[in-house]
Design a protein around this nucleic acid. Structure first.
Lengths: 163, 163
DNA sequence: ATTAATGCAAAAACTTTGCAGCAAG
DNA sequence: CTTGCTGCAAAGTTTTTGCATTAAT
């Protein structure tokens, strides 16, 4: 799947950003973790094992650039940490279901999404963007017994805790 | 409108919280600022002029309690500061339009809100809560000329700036 | 009198910034 | 070789916490 890397490289060059090793590495982290919603810290940790760990400041600065050029999207779930997901520049309309118990993030492509986008033309307010998040309990957590539920064992979901 | 204060006092007592002067003051700040979406810092500032300023730690602790008992609602617009609005315990379905230019927050009661609430029954995920925010430009800002727009004069809207 | 709540200051958590050195073009 | 990028450490913001004092019941 080098096509994503190509796309990323192209977008960066289009916007006159230099193609540095660190920026490629950061893109690779996303490409190697499809469907995940990573925090800056998680990204930094991911690069520690490699031959070229990234400084946290660089991670933040690069995330800001990648968001700017539309390669990644930022999700704020209200828990004090920003998460990012790779989009590759494509607009793929979807929302997020966050499990309050295990922290897993599921994506939904809801047909009603179009309606939401252009709902309130109220009072001449021009809507340019919106954010829709769902919170609740995922099927996996619902199917566990109380006992299992009390042991806070999780399995690979993005971690999450409401503030 | 002492009825709101009565309601607040009742709810706090119901949940076995002590009725302190600070808690009454904090409720009063909300009641005196209807329709506003206040940050902890704004609330603290508001009490400075009075004969009984609140410590910021108390503001945060009290906000947490008031949210717990359902007297206020918390709104996170992704700009790194939590805002709170008084609900008085009533569930009044509405969403927020945030102007990216002047920071004003407008409320909408959108008919489609019910659909949003119970959209994704997907994979057995049980939705218990959701957050829907709209961003854009309010009619007031749209109607200003470029010149006026460049002078960053605002008029009393809740302040806001995307991170 | 008990026990919870306050206020201060310190710490925590996340993110941004200054600056000297490094690397992409 | 020029200008932008990185990394470190320091600073900035918002929120939380420890602890002695104060106030509510």
């Amino acid at each position: 799947m080098g096509e994503w890397m190509d796309k990323a490289r192209t977008r960066l060059r289009e916007e006159n950003y230099r193609l540095t090793r660190q920026r490629e590495i950061l893109c690779r982290v996303f490409i190697d973790n499809p469907g995940r919603h990573l925090t800056a810290e998680e990204i930094r940790e991911y690069t520690i094992g490699t031959d070229h760990p990234l400084g946290l400041a660089t991670v933040y600065r690069t995330l800001s650039i990648l968001e700017d050029v539309g390669l990644i999207g930022r999700i704020d779930m209200g828990d004090g940490v920003a998460r990012y997901e790779f989009t590759g520049g494509d607009f793929r309309p979807h929302y997020h279901l966050t499990c309050l118990e295990c922290g897993s993030v599921t994506e939904v492509e809801w047909p009603g999404i179009k309606e939401v986008g252009d709902v309130p033309g109220i009072d001449g307010f021009e809507v340019t963007d919106h954010s829709l998040l769902f919170f609740g309990i995922c099927s996996h957590c619902r199917n566990r017994t109380e006992d299992e539920r009390n042991s806070n064992s999780r399995e690979g979901g993005d971690s999450y805790a409401k503030r």
